[in-house]
Nucleic acid binder design. Structure first.
Lengths: 160, 160
DNA sequence: TCTGAAAGTCAATACCG
DNA sequence: CGGTATTGACTTTCAGA
């Protein structure tokens, strides 16, 4: 995947949109000292090249009853066909799982998962995770506090 | 933090905005079978109550030269004043760190961090992390593959 | 590549069932 | 709670520098 060539104005645009994805083109143009027309052209370019992947609304977990966040390490049986495939299909289906990573180190998978409470967590592990063919072991850690929480990637390292 | 009371229409709105944060009010109203005016009133309510925390643009890490993602576990000295405070200030400052959690289990901290490459990672650990007063130990795992990656929280568990 | 103007669309408000 | 109508602002496109 090629790295895009971005100038100072593009970087300012990305910083502004990472902070507020609903900025109008006129507002964005003001922030980067451009008139709306070329600003819009640059924006379309950033979207079409895939530098901007998506615009989303972020919800507050506690306000929708998701008071519990966990990281769950799952070990899959190494032998036996299709376990990984089936597991990943299930992961896509389970709405509680927001992220799933394969990591270096141990040959297992790291899930980031939201729950309403411990009972919900328990049901998820018993009824979903451990019912899934190939799942050998499950180890969970819960988030006590989030000290930093952002979706904004660093961009200052890019060009001028 | 109180849990908001949301009806079926609110839930549809949240689902739509988690998938596309730049939907216009008219588009959103069509999706939830409402006219624009009450739709906008509901939207403002969701924003003001804090259910919608923020709108953001998500960038593609690989397209901006961030090909390496890691989880870093940091142990802080338990004795000695202000280490945690100073560390958290530094964490806010370091742009590579997108998330920082205190977890159950071991009394240490989990960072989610983006890097350009291993040399960037090395510089971060040597020049930033290990120079920070109170940092005792650092253990890193790298992301080999992301099987699921979303910011959309589950909302189907809420009312009708 | 930017500016500026023109046409269509949308946000935001007021008002009414 | 819902819908309609209005005004001003914004998006989008195109011609020209």
């Amino acid at each position: 995947m090629p790295v895009a060539t971005l100038d100072k104005t593009d970087i300012k645009m990305l910083a502004a949109l990472q902070a507020n994805g609903r900025l109008t083109n006129v507002e964005l143009a003001e922030k980067v000292a451009l008139s709306p027309s070329p600003c819009l052209r640059r924006l379309k370019q950033l979207e079409e090249s895939g530098v901007i992947r998506q615009y989303v609304a972020l919800l507050e977990p506690a306000k929708i009853g998701l008071g519990l966040q966990a990281f769950v390490r799952v070990s899959l049986e190494k032998r036996g066909g299709g376990h990984l495939e089936n597991f990943m299909e299930a992961v896509q289906r389970w709405p509680e799982v927001v992220n799933c990573y394969a990591m270096t180190g141990e040959m297992d998978y790291l899930l980031q998962v939201y729950f309403e409470d411990l009972e919900h967590f328990s049901r998820f592990v018993m009824d979903d995770l451990l019912q899934q063919p190939g799942v050998e072991d499950v180890k969970s850690s819960f988030v006590l506090k989030e000290f930093k929480k952002t979706t904004a990637l660093p961009i200052s390292h890019l060009g001028q």
